[in-house]
Structures are given as structure tokens and as C-alpha cells.
Design a binder for these strands. Structure first.
Length: 405
RNA sequence: GGGUGGAUACCCAAGCGGUCAACGGGGCCAGACUGUAAAUCUGGUGGCUCUGCCUUCGCAGGUUCGAAUCCUGCUCCACCCA
């Protein structure tokens, strides 16, 4: 096992705050001395089915702890999910039903397993304990915090100021999260920066059961593919860990140049000096982003798939067709006697566009071309001669070879 | 319980009797540029048998030659006072 200082150095990467830091170092030292791994908690609420790169920031940290010999404890917040985490939001989350949550939870674990070693991890559902609670238990928990403490939270304070609703059950969220730490006797808890409040609640609760208060370790919030707002499912600016290599790579390339440094730090293990070199003045940001994209895709799909995705991307930006062109079937009776079909109808039939109207727009905009010579069709009234094997393209990303049936 | 404000296309948000398929922004799509799906610029963004027609502005009715805009009822949401 590495000594405490060496561990701290590794674990520090990309971390925002360790509260309290001095205590963390001592805890690491003791863990080594007594050969007792730290219990490192990370909670995730199964609110949707997609684990994205934003979640992987703390998950990757958890993995680092595992690799250093510590114990990863994953909490599936099936009960907290029904409350909805108010952190970092300026509005109430919509509540989920128990069935939705259960279904999501199963899917989550599968995805989380892509990052951490589930074999060696401990997994709990917080419904395991909250599900057994009675009303008096809830009261006893609520006794631990005042309205003033709760409403001092930035997100609640902001909502109150903006005259937006704050529901009572939301106030329970940080307490529930804190209690999870008591149940599993956490040494460290990971979370995003906006989680600090919730992470510290546990420190108040743990002594009630004679436990040492946990260390809070916060990670920066990853920005989404739009380069400004936090990555999130509801904002539609996320890259999912379960997405295909091509999707992941393409989405990485579509991230603005500015957040690249953050992505390198939080999503890859590339040593910082190398990162600095890649992002240095005068280098093409495209190349840095390609390294970034490959590194991320490789984590979920392997080196080879990452290289393939990058190569396919290069072909596309060079204006070449991809190596594998998907085949679509077109019923021959859609064609007229001379084997023609109206251009908008063609786009709709092969599923490139949802409506004739939108197909017309693409055509008029110059986005539609056919055949080896890429003849551009801009007249929405044009009739296209369709032969078996005709290649049609719409925009830069849609391409297909037609097979008449 | 009382009061006030609100519900408009994917999201935010104008419009308040005709010139409204509905300003503006975001997002998204396409084009130009760039060996980035970045940035920037341009165009588009309900549907159709498309120089016209059909269906949209919380729901249901009504007034009017004509309504997203006025009236009535309903549903939903929020805030304030108690």
C-alpha cells in the first residue's frame, strides 16, 4: 500500500475541497497503520436511466480509492429519488414513482459497473433502512436541523428570494443523505461541489451513533456539451457512458474548446504536463480534442473502438463517406413507372426526416445529395431516379444505401 | 378561508379584435468557413397532394363578418395575507 502522502497526491487530482483536509490525511495514515481500508461513500439517485460523464467524475474518484485498496460503498438512493435532490437547482424536481425508481436502479448499477469494480464494492439501497421507518423515526431525524440551517442553503435561499416554491419534503433530503452515512459508517463521502451542505449534515448525525464524522470530498461540476451549463440529462447536454463509440466521440468533439482542460483533468488519467502540452498555444485544439475523445471512448469501449470512432470522424470531416454505409429498404411500389420518387418523399420514406415539410426544408437548404458524384438536389419538386444501391446523403451525418424490395 | 398573478410552438418569452403559423432569445436542422460536430457568419424551424390549403396559442362553450387577443364556466400552477 502506498503511503498516505502518495495516496493524497493521487486522490487530490481534480478535487475541489476536502473538508477538513488535515483530518483526511490523518485518517489515511491510520488506515495504513491499522490496515483498515477507508469506507468511501458515493450516493446516486436513480432518477433517470442514463449515467453520464458528469456522474463519472465522483465515480472515477471512487475507483481511485478502490485501486488504492479502500472500500467503495455505493448507495442507490431509491428513497431519496422519490424526494428529489434540490441541490443546485432552482426548481423542484418531479417526483418519481416506486416502480420507476426500481427499474432505474437496476439499470444504474449496470452502468456504474463500467467505472467502478462492483465485485469489490458494497452496494446498498437507502430504502433498505428508510423503508422500515415509522413516523417517529422521521420526527427524530427532523429534530436534528433547524429551518434556519436548511433555508441558509444557497439553492433554497435563492428560491425563497425568487418567490419560488420550496416544499417541505425537499428539506428532508439532506437529512436523509446524511443518515445514509450513519447507516454505512462512512469515512469519506464524495459529491459535487453543490453537495457540500448535504455532505456536512452527516458530520452532525454520525456522532449520535458514536461514529467519527466523515470527511467530505467535493468534485467540480462538469460542464455539459454546450460548454456552459452543468452536464445533465434534463438539459440534454450530456454524454452517456452507455452511448456508442461514435456518439461519444462526436459529442466530445462538439464540446467547445474552452472546457477541454476541465475534461482532461476530470475525465482522463493523462498526466497534467501532457495535458498542458496538448493545450499549449499554437497547437490545433482539434488534435487535443481528438486525444480527449479517444481517451474517453476507450474507457467505455476499448482502445480499438475509440480509434475507429476517431477515424470515422476524420473521414466525415474530410467529406468522405464512412467505411460502412447503413442499408435502408425501400419498397419498389413507392416509385413511379419510370423508377422515380419525389425527393421529399424519399427522405421521409427512408426515415431521414419525420415529415415531408422538414424534408423539403433540408432539400431547399442544400443538404441533400445522391450518388457517387454527390449531385445536390435543391428543388423539392425534383424526382429522383432510384436504382438498387443508390447512396443518399442528408446533411453531414445521415447517409444510407438504398436497397429496393 | 381571502387576495393577486399566470397557463402561447422543444424551452424561455412577446403579442392583448383583423396585416398571426404568431416578435425575440435558447436549442435544434441545413449551408458557408475551418483538416474540430469548436468559434464565426447565413438560412430554416406545425402539417399537407405547397405560389395554395388544413390544424395550432390550458380545456369547453359564447360574442363578432373576423379571436391567441373580448365574455362565461372549468382545470391546473404559483405568490401574498390569514
Amino acid at each position: 500500500m502506498l503511503d498516505a502522502q502518495a495516496q493524497l497526491e493521487i486522490l487530490r487530482r481534480g478535487v475541489d475541497q476536502i473538508v477538513p483536509e488535515a483530518e483526511f490525511l490523518k485518517r489515511l495514515e491510520r488506515s495504513i497503520r491499522e490496515n483498515r481500508p477507508l469506507r468511501v461513500k458515493y450516493g446516486i439517485d436513480p432518477t433517470g436511466i442514463d449515467v453520464h460523464l458528469g456522474h463519472t467524475v465522483p465515480l472515477r474518484k471512487l475507483r481511485q480509492f478502490q485501486d488504492l485498496g479502500h472500500k467503495a460503498v455505493v448507495i442507490i438512493g431509491n428513497y431519496t429519488a422519490m424526494v428529489g435532490d434540490p441541490s443546485g437547482r432552482d426548481e423542484t424536481r418531479s417526483a418519481l414513482t416506486a416502480e420507476q425508481v426500481a427499474a432505474n436502479a437496476r439499470d444504474y448499477l449496470k452502468q456504474v459497473g463500467r467505472i467502478i469494480d462492483l465485485e469489490k464494492a458494497e452496494v446498498h439501497h437507502n430504502g433498505d433502512w428508510f423503508g422500515k421507518w415509522g413516523f417517529l423515526d422521521v420526527l427524530d431525524l427532523m429534530r436534528r436541523m433547524t429551518l434556519g440551517q436548511i433555508s441558509a442553503r444557497e439553492d433554497f435561499a435563492k428560491r425563497i428570494k425568487d418567490e419560488k416554491p420550496v416544499y417541505l419534503h425537499e428539506c428532508l433530503y439532506p437529512l436523509m443523505q446524511g443518515w445514509d452515512s450513519v447507516e454505512i459508517d462512512a469515512d469519506v463521502e464524495l459529491g459535487g461541489t453543490e453537495q457540500l451542505f448535504s455532505l456536512l449534515v452527516a458530520r452532525q448525525l454520525q456522532p449520535l451513533r458514536g461514529q467519527e464524522p466523515q470527511i467530505a470530498m467535493t468534485m467540480p461540476i462538469l460542464v455539459g456539451t454546450d460548454g456552459t451549463r452543468r452536464m445533465g440529462k434534463s438539459l440534454g447536454n450530456y454524454i452517456g457512458v452507455a452511448e456508442s463509440p461514435e456518439e461519444q466521440f462526436g459529442k466530445v468533439m462538439s464540446v467547445p474548446d474552452e472546457p477541454m482542460a476541465q475534461y482532461f483533468t476530470l475525465l482522463t488519467d493523462l498526466p497534467q504536463p501532457e495535458v498542458r502540452e496538448l493545450l499549449a498555444e499554437g497547437t490545433n485544439p482539434r488534435d487535443a480534442k481528438e486525444v480527449l475523445g479517444k481517451s474517453i471512448v476507450a474507457q467505455y469501449h476499448g482502445r480499438e473502438a475509440a480509434d475507429r470512432a476517431a477515424a470515422a470522424f476524420r473521414r466525415r470531416s474530410a467529406g468522405e463517406d464512412p467505411l460502412e454505409i447503413p442499408v435502408v429498404h425501400l419498397s419498389a411500389d413507392k416509385l413511379d413507372a419510370e423508377g422515380r420518387i419525389a425527393a421529399p418523399a424519399l427522405l421521409k420514406e427512408i426515415g431521414f426526416e419525420a415529415s415531408t415539410s422538414s424534408a423539403r426544408r433540408v432539400i431547399e437548404g442544400g443538404g441533400f445529395n445522391v450518388g457517387p458524384r454527390r449531385e445536390v438536389v435543391t428543388d423539392p419538386k425534383a424526382l429522383v431516379y432510384v436504382k438498387d444501391g443508390l447512396i443518399v446523403r442528408s446533411g453531414k451525418r445521415k447517409i444510407a444505401e438504398i436497397r429496393l424490395v
